[in-house]
Nucleic acid binder design. Structure first.
Length: 485
DNA sequence: AAGGCCTACAACCGCCCTCTT
DNA sequence: AAAGAGGGCGGTTGTAGGCCT
């Protein structure tokens, strides 16, 4: 690094030496050094931490003479100087674990690092970013196939009997993650509850950023890197989904390669009618790692344009059109049109505490319907995607991204509904955190123009299922959950 | 040998949360 | 309750070094 030559031997800069390396982020009148650390600085920092312990990093500069801001000190300590740091390449086990953790957590590097003793979030992050690029280039799925298959199998087998066979460690890990619901889920649920039920929380432009960045690449059809920039913590909806991680509604079906990869994952494209497709669709989220912002209106997103390469050349119609014969669409139609199991509506759907799931779903349907109406129904009449249609579709997808906020943010595979129910079920019984009522003002603030009910029209329903393919499997989960209840 | 590309890594930046006052 | 400081976290950038052409 060239600017290392400017550093003084003792690792500290005089104020003159520091020159333009003023750290405008941390500095409070003192010129602080930036750039690589020297061994002398490291020694000073280590000595300081030995004496005073970690924390109060801003005091390091004051007491040790280091011309580094507290943040820089903390980072240096955490990433390089603290004891028990494991250096060197990640082992195969670690890589596997990282993949699992990422599938489960998304870009929560710090949390992932907690599962990898001796590894830092920065290391993991760098590793993952590199991995993404590498695997993109190689045309490989981001997540190991076995990682993708597990949730599918578990879905089919039920939620409690999945500990037979397979990698026990991994399965145990996944199961653990399923039943030990981290606090963050409740945090998010609480937070989301504030936005629910009628908050088509608008995925902001970053959603389009994802589109812009990812969907243009056929490689992304297989794995949407959830490392894609998200904007705000806690606003993001990082629900990476192996399989979904890439099976974007657009690309997945327009590319033979995608299809092959899909098959390699053990499921087939919806274009291939297959009984397994329904479950397969559990993998097919729209856009993972979408970010949502409650402050941005939908129509902002609607106006965003997509590059031409995002206009699918083929088969978008299978998503963009309401193909009644599509089993997946039928499943949703059947669910929404026909009453759920007895008591469901009153106890589960109408209850404020669960309004976030079905209500959100329905509200989205309404929103989508509304959006669709505004788009001069050209999309519904043409199997060929037009730019306008795509914009509309993208909007719908973005609307769908809200699902991620309603869903388990830590769900390994984007099992939004499943995870949600795994949380809601006990919560509903105990009437705990989900009792939080959405503030009325928030509800009122939403542009909810029409009263609407469960009887969503077919078109809307289809749109809904198109928008969020995972919605297609939600009815199944809903029914299962209701039976359990 | 030179240039370009890719990878790994370190560090910074900006936002947000939490705690303290 | 509000404001400010400290700290954490995720994203981004810049650089060195290796590899390839």
């Amino acid at each position: 690094m060239s600017h290392m030559t400017n550093e003084s031997e003792d690792g500290m800069l005089s104020k003159d030496d520091a020159g333009s390396q003023l750290n405008d982020d941390c500095d409070v009148g003192i010129i602080l050094k930036k750039g690589p650390w020297t061994s002398a600085e490291d020694a000073i920092l280590v000595e300081y931490v030995k004496k005073h312990g970690e924390g109060n990093w801003n005091a390091v500069q004051k007491h040790s003479g280091l011309y580094r801001c507290g943040k820089s000190c903390r980072l240096r300590w955490a990433n390089h100087l603290r004891p028990n740091l494991k250096k060197g390449a990640f082992t195969a086990d670690e890589e596997q674990l990282i993949a699992e953790l990422h599938a489960k957590m998304g870009n929560k590097w710090a949390r992932m690092a907690a599962h990898l003793p001796g590894r830092t979030d920065n290391e993991i992050k760098n590793y993952w970013n590199t991995r993404i690029k590498r695997r993109q280039r190689a045309g490989l799925p981001l997540y190991p196939p076995e990682l993708c298959m597990e949730p599918l199998q578990e879905n089919q087998e039920g939620h409690t009997d999945g500990i037979n066979g397979g990698d026990k460690r991994h399965r145990g890990f996944l199961l653990k993650s399923r039943y030990e619901i981290p606090d963050v889920i409740f945090d998010r649920l609480k937070a989301n509850q504030c936005l629910l039920p009628y908050v088509p929380e608008i995925p902001d432009i970053s959603e389009n950023s994802i589109l812009l960045k990812g969907l243009g690449s056929s490689q992304y059809c297989n794995f949407m890197p959830s490392t894609l920039p998200s904007q705000k913590r806690l606003r993001e909806s990082t629900v990476p989904c192996p399989g979904s991680n890439g099976f974007s509604a657009f690309d997945h079906f327009q590319d033979d390669v995608c299809d092959k990869v899909a098959q390699s994952f053990g499921f087939s494209s919806p274009l291939h009618p297959d009984p397994a497709s329904e479950n397969s669709l559990s993998f097919i989220h729209s856009l993972s790692d979408g970010n949502s912002s409650a402050s941005k209106p939908t129509n902002v997103a609607v106006k965003l344009e997509l590059p031409s390469f995002q206009y699918p050349e083929t088969d978008l119609g299978s998503w963009g059109s309401s193909t009644p014969s599509h089993p997946l669409l039928e499943s949703v139609d059947a669910f929404i049109q026909s009453p759920p199991p007895t008591g469901m509506q009153e106890e589960e759907c109408s209850s404020p505490r669960n309004s976030g799931l079905l209500d959100a779903l329905l509200h989205q349907a309404k929103t989508l319907s509304s959006t669709k109406n505004h788009s001069s129904d050209k999309s519904s009449k043409s199997a060929t995607a037009t730019p306008g249609e795509i914009a509309n579709t993208s909007t719908l997808n973005m609307c769908g991204t809200e699902w991620e906020d309603y869903a388990d943010p830590i769900s390994p595979f984007g099992h939004s509904a499943t995870s949600l129910f795994s949380e809601l079920t006990p919560l509903s019984a105990s009437a705990s955190t989900m009792d939080v009522q959405p503030p009325c003002d928030i509800v009122k603030s939403e542009p909810c123009e029409q009263a609407w009910t469960l009887s969503v029209d077919n078109e809307t329903t289809s749109l809904l299922s198109i928008t969020r393919p995972d919605v297609c499997v939600a009815p199944i989960w809903l029914e299962q959950a209701c039976r359990q209840i």
